[in-house]
Amino acid sequence: MSPAERADTTVLECSGVGDGGITRVLTEVVRHWPGPQRLRVVAAPPDWAVPPTDPAVQVEVVSRQPADRARAIASAATALRGVTGRADRGTAPATRVLSLSPSLAVRGSRLPVTTVVHDLAFRLWPHGLSGAVRQYRRVSYGTAIGRSARLLCVSARTRHDLLGLYGVPDDRTAVWHPGSSLDTPPGPLPAPLATRAAGGERYLAVTGHAAHKGVEIAVDALPDLPGYVLAVLTGGQRVPEFEAAVARCAATERVLFLDRLPEDGYAATIAGAAAFLMPSHFEGYGLPAAEALRLGTPVVVSPDPALHEATGGRAARMTTWTSRALVDAVTEATTAPRPPVGECGRSWRTATAHLADLLAGAPTATRPAGR
Rank of each mutant, 00 (worst) to 15 (best):
R150W: 11
A121G: 08
T114R: 01
R134W: 04
A132Y: 11
I145N: 08
T114H: 01
Y136M: 05
S130K: 13
V113F: 07
V168M: 00
L152H: 09
R157A: 11
L162H: 05
S140C: 03
H160F: 01
V154Q: 02
T115M: 06
V154H: 04
R159G: 11
A144Q: 09
T143N: 03
V154P: 02
V116N: 04
H160M: 02
F122P: 02
D161T: 05
L162S: 03
G108Y: 06
L151H: 02
V139I: 15
V133F: 01
R159D: 03
R138P: 00
V133E: 14
S109R: 08
V113Q: 04
Y141Q: 05
L120I: 12
L124Y: 00
S140M: 00
T114V: 15
R134K: 12
G146C: 11
G146W: 10
Y141I: 04
S130T: 15
V116Y: 07
S148M: 10
G146R: 15
S140F: 02
G164I: 00
Q135S: 14
R159V: 05
R157I: 04
R157Q: 11
S155P: 04
T114A: 13
S140L: 04
V168L: 03
R110I: 00
R137V: 00
T115F: 01
L163R: 14
G128D: 13
